[in-house]
Amino acid sequence: MGKFLSLILILSGLVAGGAMYYLQVYGFYEDVELQPGQDVMLMPLGGGEPLPIRYSDFEAIDADSSPIRYRACFSTELKPEQLAQLFVLSDQKQPRNAPGWFDCFDAEAIGQALAEGRAESFLSVKNISYGVDRIVAVTDAGRGYVWHELNDCGQKAYDGTVVGEECPPRPEAVEGN
């Protein structure tokens, strides 16, 4: 009887572990529906609302389970030098990893291109979700990548540090009034 119970416990652990792995890597992600003219936008130097840039071959994934799971890839004929004259540069030089099955987004290769000056990163949308900015990187070869990154307010909010007055109020605080 003891061997049978042990076998059940081991099998239950394997099934639970497999289910957790599947949910983290595959289960929560969905393809993002194409929204022409709105998928790739950059923040202009003078401020104001983000402006669209020309792009093609757009593909993206996202998950409702976290605001930083968004990843996208696209092509553009625009060069980073051209864009830098018109749009706000970002200091984010290392994108977050994407699931291995999302082949077009290789965070390590993108980060290396950014570090070597073969790509440039730009601010796309500030606070797309509380404490999260959308970042766009464009390479010299005409490939583009999009991901979400915690900004200063997001890092403070999620690590427990006092947020301070320079950050906007959290959405929960606004709804509670």
Rank of each mutant, 00 (worst) to 15 (best):
R143T: 10
S129L: 10
K93C: 04
S65L: 05
A157V: 14
D91V: 07
D57F: 06
L123M: 13
V132L: 04
V136W: 04
I135Q: 05
P169A: 09
A157R: 14
D152E: 15
P171F: 04
F74H: 03
F87N: 07
S129F: 08
E81A: 02
Q94C: 08
S56R: 14
A141H: 06
D103Q: 06
G117D: 11
P99K: 05
V88Y: 08
G131I: 00
S56G: 13
R143H: 15
G160K: 12
F105N: 00
N97E: 12
Y158H: 09
D64S: 10
L150K: 08
I128C: 06
G46W: 06
P95S: 10
K93N: 12
E165F: 15
I68M: 05
W101Q: 03
P99W: 06
F102A: 05
V163A: 10
A115Q: 08
E172S: 10
E116N: 07
A157S: 15
A63Y: 01
P80Y: 09
G144M: 09
P67W: 00
G160V: 03
Q92I: 03
Y55G: 04
G48T: 14
D91Q: 12
K79E: 09
A115P: 10
P171H: 02
D64A: 13
Y158I: 08
S129H: 10
Q85A: 06
Q92M: 04
A72S: 11
A84Q: 14
E77P: 01
G144W: 05
E77C: 01
V136P: 08
D152A: 12
K79P: 05
D152F: 11
L78N: 11
K79A: 07
A60Q: 03
P168S: 05
A113K: 15
E165A: 15
L51A: 14
A109M: 01
A113T: 11
D159M: 13
V125F: 03
K156W: 09
G164N: 09
P50A: 06
E108L: 14
I53R: 12
V138Y: 12
L45A: 00
L123R: 07
R118N: 15
G154H: 06
C73H: 08
A115R: 11
I110M: 07
D106W: 01
R118C: 11
Y55P: 01
K93E: 10
G154T: 07
S124K: 03
L114G: 08
E108K: 15
P50D: 00
F74R: 06
A109V: 00
F58W: 02
S65M: 06
G46Y: 07
G154I: 06
